[in-house]
């Protein structure tokens, strides 16, 4: 598939990518390589300029069924409390009453925010807001999770906690995950498979299987020799792309 924007910028050119169900796949690449665009196309938030995007064998036309999307930026509704934000997708999907309240309370509890049900987003820290967003996404149990650098704005400690949280919630859930990041370490620590993309217009440069055992300890896994090995191989691939993206940015600037 190919995606060219109205401005004439081509984010993706000839991307061929197939994701097996129930896998945790990370997409890495330099900024501007079209990682986020790929997710938007899978979610149906945007349409490709050429080629097709199919989910579960069906071409994407409008918002894809049963996907969850975690955005890099804050996407909670600032005028709704934690409870109302988490309950919103249920409300939109016609789940109401006691069942909706129960599932909402359950998920607020599972992301560790019990006691904050009545708080507004501005009263929470960045990490807590991400937890709310996670609960909001998981409460309707989507089969596919799309995450667009969801933790890049958090400090390192909070970020590690959130990564561990995501792994814990995903483990055994049977969900397919596409996780976009520019951080190789994060990609390897979380994913079953890492897709390296080229500098824009993005193409798939290489794919790596991550043979690290599960369940994983997000802290410990980084000391595994296979982790270091993968990191080196991927970084070799990434370096050229990062340099190219950097050179282009300098030229443009």
């Amino acid at each position: 598939m190919t995606k060219t924007f109205e401005t004439g910028y081509t984010a993706l050119r000839g991307v061929q990518l197939e994701i097996a169900p129930q896998r945790f796949v990370a997409l890495v690449g330099p900024s501007g390589c079209g990682k986020s665009t790929t997710l938007a196309l899978v979610a149906g938030l945007d349409a490709p300029s050429g080629g097709t995007v199919s989910v579960r064998g069906k071409p994407v036309d409008g918002i894809t069924d049963s996907v969850g999307f975690l955005f890099q930026r804050d996407a909670l509704l600032p005028w709704k409390t934690v409870r109302d934000n988490v309950m919103l997708p249920l409300q939109l999907r016609g789940v109401a009453g006691a069942q909706a309240r129960e599932r909402t309370a359950d998920w607020i509890d599972r992301v560790g925010l019990r006691g904050f049900e009545g708080a507004y987003p501005y009263q929470l820290s960045g990490g807590m807001r991400k937890r709310v967003a996670l609960a909001q996404t998981l409460v309707y149990d989507p089969e596919i999770l799309l995450m667009d650098e969801p933790f890049s704005a958090l400090d390192v400690q909070t970020r590690n906690l959130m990564e561990a949280e995501v792994l814990g919630l995903w483990q055994g859930s049977g969900k397919t995950v596409m996780f976009v990041t520019h951080d190789l370490e994060e990609a390897i620590a979380l994913a079953d498979e890492v897709v390296v993309m080229t500098a824009g217009p993005g193409r798939v440069k290489a794919r790596y299987d991550v043979p690290l055992p599960r369940p994983r300890d997000i802290e410990q896994v980084r000391f595994d020799p296979r982790f270091t090995e993968l990191y080196r191989a991927m970084w070799d691939d990434m370096r050229d792309e990062v340099l190219e993206s950097y050179a282009r940015a300098r030229q443009a600037g």
């Binding site: 979610a43 938030l45 918002i63 955005f71 996407a75 909670l76 939109l92």
Partner: peptide, 19 residues
């Protein structure tokens, strides 16, 4: 981003308006 989010969460045009 807020609009994209509620659309993925299942909002119709009217729901985007309202929420």
């Amino acid at each position: 981003t807020l609009i994209a989010n509620v659309r993925v969460l299942g909002a119709s045009r009217w729901a985007v308006m309202r929420h």
